[in-house]
Every structure is written in C-alpha cells, then in structure tokens.
C-alpha cells in the first residue's frame, strides 16, 4: 500500500525513515521532535523530502532522482491535523463538503455523500453548527468525516487526540478505532501516547531521533499502563 524511504535534513536534525504499510493501521510512536509529524507531512506532500521515494499504491508520489513530486491535491490522502484545522468560516456541513465541492461534484451528489458520512459519524444534528461551537470530540469527528468523505486511499492522523481531555480522549479513540475498522482503510497514526498506539494500531513503529528504532505488534511492545503517557526517555 505504502512504501517509502526518505531523508530530510534540518539544522541539527536528520530524518531518515524507511517504512512499508499494508492494509493495516500503523502507529508511529515517538516523542516530540522525533520526526513523526514531518514523516506524515512528507507522505501527504505538504513537506518535500531532500532524498528518497514515496510510493502510494501503484503510484510513485515522490522520487528525488526522477524528479517526481505529485502535489498533495493529487495524492488522494486523507489528513487529520493535530490542530484539526476545521475551516472556521464554514459550518459542519460545508467543512465536510469542501473536498467534494472542489472536485466539482453535483450538489445532489455532495448532499448524498456528506449526509451519509454525517449519519455514520453521528454528526447529523450538528449540520449548521460552526466549528467554534463544537466540543473537542465533535470537532474530531468532523475532521475525520471531512478527510474520509473524499474516499482517500490512505488516512493520516497527526496526534489526533492531543487536544482532548482524558475522558473524551478514551471515548473518541474508541470511536475512531471502530470507524477505521468498519471502513477498512489503511491508516498511519502519529502519537506520543503508547495507549493510543496500543488501542488503535495493528503494528507500532517507534521513531526516535529521526530513525525507526523498532517495529512490533502492540502486545510485544511495552505493557500499557492505564492513563500513563508513554515516554521514550
């Protein structure tokens, strides 16, 4: 599904990541500054690596030597940002419809698909609400719906629960897990929380200092301590 090997240099830091992803949910675990967000943005095309390649499905999205760099618009990747980045001037419906509207779909088709996903994620009641009126968990679901409605090949989630309080976090995490299982869409979740990774992922990659240190199924990594944030140091 996804195959990449990229290098990106920053002052005092070098990111060098090799990664293969099948039809699975992968957690990219690491502390702040380990390079996990940059890796995710490189896959989405929002950051350009210095060297390497990124293959998504059968398309070569990036290849430094061949000079290939497909823009983010054409990569068909759903991205849920850490800040969620719901468009503050658009209501819930308009936010979710955005990706379909820019594709020039008919109003009827947009209505149909947006309504279906709002129904599935329990957002139907919130149709005319503005993002600033939503709770943390509701925003999270809108961001997910907006990313999923365009039917991406791959879903990327960057610290998706970091803005939530502990209780909402557990609730939303389970909702997200159920949604991902139901849709059977490959996904990469970037997190610094071991619990997030253990509950959501089929496989965990630990990223440290710009390199992947270990790849294990959740049970074989560190035992989860309830409510305790996993720290690598």
């Amino acid at each position: 599904m996804l195959d990449l090997s990229i290098t990106k240099r920053f002052p005092g830091f070098r990111l060098n990541v090799q990664l293969k992803l099948g039809r699975e949910i992968l957690a990219l675990l690491g502390e702040n500054g380990s390079g996990k967000s940059t890796t995710l943005k490189a896959i989405a095309g929002l950051v350009t690596p210095d060297e390497g390649y990124i293959r998504i499905g059968n398309t070569l999205a990036f290849h430094s030597e061949l000079g290939i760099n497909i823009p983010p618009q054409k990569r068909s990747i759903g991205f849920v940002f850490q800040e969620l980045a719901l468009f503050p001037h658009l209501n819930v419906y308009e936010n979710i419809a955005f990706g379909l509207k820019v594709r020039g779909y008919s109003r009827a088709r947009i209505g149909e698909e947006v309504n279906a996903i709002m129904q599935a994620l329990g957002l139907a009641e919130l149709r005319y609400h503005m993002p600033c009126e939503l709770s943390g968990g509701q925003k999270q679901r809108v961001a997910l719906a907006r990313a999923l409605v365009t039917k991406p090949r791959l879903l990327l989630l960057d610290e998706p629960f970091s803005a939530l309080d502990l209780r909402t976090r557990q609730e939303v995490r389970e909702q997200v897990r159920d949604i991902l299982k139901t849709l059977n869409i490959p996904a990469i979740i970037v997190t610094h929380d071991y619990e997030d990774a253990a509950i959501l992922a089929d496989r965990i990659c630990v990223l440290s200092n710009g390199r992947i240190k270990s790849q294990k199924p959740p049970s074989a990594t560190m035992p989860p301590l309830p409510g305790v944030v996993y720290s690598l140091s």
Binding site: A44, G45, G99
Partner: peptide
C-alpha cells in the same frame, strides 16, 4: 498555513484555496 495545508489535502488547488480559505479568513 495549516488551513491551507488542509485545503490542499482535500484536493483544492492553490488558487481555489486562496479564494475559499485564505481570502475569507
């Protein structure tokens, strides 16, 4: 810029992003 990045990943061109996201904001 995250708003613009979000718009790009949703398939909007730079110009569409300018018109529908940056300009209204």
């Amino acid at each position: 810029r995250t708003f613009e990045g979000a718009s790009y990943t949703l398939g909007a061109s730079e110009f569409t992003t300018f018109l529908r996201v940056s300009l209204p904001l």
